[in-house]
Amino acid sequence: MRPGSIIYFFREAGKSLKRNRLLSFATITTVAVCILILGFGVLFTINASNFMNHLESDVQIRAFLEQDLTASQISDIGRKIEAIPGVGSNKFISRDEALQQMQKDFGRREYDLKETLGKNPLPHTYMVKVKNPREVSQLAAKIKSMPGVYKVNYGQGTVEKLFKVTRWMRIIGIIFIVLLLVGAVFLIATTIRLAIFARRKEIYLMKLIGSTDWFIRWPFFLEGILLSSLGALISIGILAMAYGSLISKIDNLFFIQLVSDAGTIRNLYLVLLGTGAGLGVVGTWISLNRFLKV
């Protein structure tokens, strides 16, 4: 490609932008709206996924020990639990600690639990966190089979339901984003088609004079990338402001923790910008090819 041609491409793209102000504006707006919706969709999905991760990682196994174990038997069980592959952390809670905790939960000092009950009815407990929450039921079964453990509790039934729900939520999130993308491509392609349609005579002429397809395409691509990047930047600006204020208002207010890690958010915005530019290219490609078949 000659440098003269590159200058020509930019000049043509610039001229076309100036001439078709209304359509340029329409393209920018369309991309901005699409990316805005997409951005909110992705932010929602990321946060939902983050929330589900929290829920899932909260799942832990309580292993209740039999009453008459010696201290060495207890620590032996602890070691055995930790030796099971897939076990993350393991915390021992003695029956005294458990009672204190219970006492605290009731919250009234004058109400002495131990005195009321006569003796401490609570067992020693191991609180086991697993590396992969999905293995929780298998690990629980293994721990239960160990001598000295008389019962395990990990919210049987509820956990399985939770996983089913979170799995579906993730699938729905992905489908949602894919649908948004497809919709955005067609919306943008239609808008760009209008801009190209206005110049179909010129394209036909160029083809008959002997332009190559790429020579015709480049100015349109430049135009498409420029307009859709601009649209994406606008929507990212709006998104950043909206999400930023949401974080500052919601944070520490709810049990929901919004994803606010600067790196993740920045990457998201970069991806959205890239998606915007990409939508411009795909939209231009789809719209333009029809006019090049001469």
């Binding site: 000659r2 003269g4 020509y8 002997g210 015709i216």
Partner: peptide
């Protein structure tokens, strides 16, 4: 225009 689009030199 006809010369530009076939890549003629300026």
């Amino acid at each position: 225009f006809a010369m530009e689009v076939v890549g003629a030199s300026s």
